[in-house]
Amino acid sequence: MYYVFKDLFFPPVSEADEEGILAIGGDLNPERLKLAYTSGVFPWFNEGEPVLWWSPDPRMVLFLDELIVSKSMRNVLNRNQFKVTFNQNFLEVISNCQKIKREGQDGTWISNEMIDAYCQLHKEGMAKSVEVWQDEVLVGGLYGIDLGHVFCGESMFSKVSNASKVAFIALVQSLKEENYKLLDCQVYNPHLESLGCREIDREEFMSILENKKL
């Protein structure tokens, strides 16, 4: 296991353990975060514990042409009950992702330190958000890291039914229009699978990330 101190360095992702943990320690300095995402690594840890840096194998991703929009979701979209914006209120989106209660989870992994770090990346144009509004109230959204050809999804929230799905679909449609290769969803969950996401080998993911497979 590699221990991160002050140096801006990550070992090859192939050195991650069976769980996907590649390194421990360090901080959420924006430069370290930039290096992490461009290296196929992301932070995921509990507040008060050392930062854990992950590169799981397999990796959950969405190939944009494989997005699944159910008939019921198409009906929701056609009713135009939501308004979608991009990068209009990043702080509120990530703050809601921190506060929202999730089934099977006690607390949140999004610390105040993490919010500060990602807000800095947002100011630099690397972290982006999607907002979903209903009657001028923010009811859903998501945020992630934009690498220019791959978007790394971090978290999403929903205060009313379907709002996070609307954000997800809007993001995918936008990425597809701009010829992105992939939406990185990091690790498996059944909700993502229902939207068309699937697991691929880390080697394949890294090949796409490094623009070796177009």
Rank of each mutant, 00 (worst) to 15 (best):
L142N: 01
L35R: 05
M73G: 08
G125F: 06
P12Y: 07
N29H: 12
N89D: 14
R74W: 13
C97S: 05
E18P: 05
P12T: 10
E19R: 14
L35K: 09
Q98K: 14
S39M: 08
L22T: 01
V93K: 00
F90Q: 00
D146Y: 06
A127C: 10
R32F: 13
E131H: 05
I24F: 06
E131G: 03
G26R: 00
N29Q: 12
P56L: 07
N80C: 15
A117V: 10
K99C: 11
T85C: 07
G107A: 13
E18F: 13
R74F: 14
E103W: 09
R79T: 14
V130A: 03
F9V: 14
I21H: 04
S129I: 02
E18H: 13
Q134L: 12
S55H: 08
Q134M: 12
W133C: 08
A23H: 01
M73T: 09
R32W: 12
K71C: 11
Y118F: 14
E66L: 12
A36M: 06
D7V: 14
V41E: 00
G141T: 04
G25F: 02
V51S: 06
N96G: 05
R32N: 12
L142Y: 02
D135I: 08
S95M: 09
V69K: 02
P56S: 11
M114N: 03
Y143E: 03
L62I: 10
Q134A: 10
Q134F: 11
M73S: 07
G141A: 06
K128Q: 13
P43Q: 04
F82K: 03
E15P: 04
E19D: 15
D106H: 13
Y143I: 08
K101P: 10
F86R: 09
F10H: 06
V41P: 00
V130N: 00
V137R: 15
A36I: 04
D106T: 15
P56E: 09
G20Q: 02
E31S: 13
F10K: 02
A36D: 03
N87K: 05
G20Y: 01
I110T: 05
G140E: 00
L77M: 14
E66S: 15
D27G: 12
Y118P: 01
Y37W: 11
D116Y: 15
S95F: 06
Y37I: 09
D57N: 14
N29I: 09
V13E: 01
F86S: 08
L33H: 01
V41H: 00
A127Q: 02
R32Q: 10
S72A: 14
K101R: 15
D27C: 10
Q98D: 05
R74G: 12
C97H: 01
V76C: 08
E103F: 12
G125I: 08
G144K: 00
G125T: 12
Q120A: 14
C97A: 10
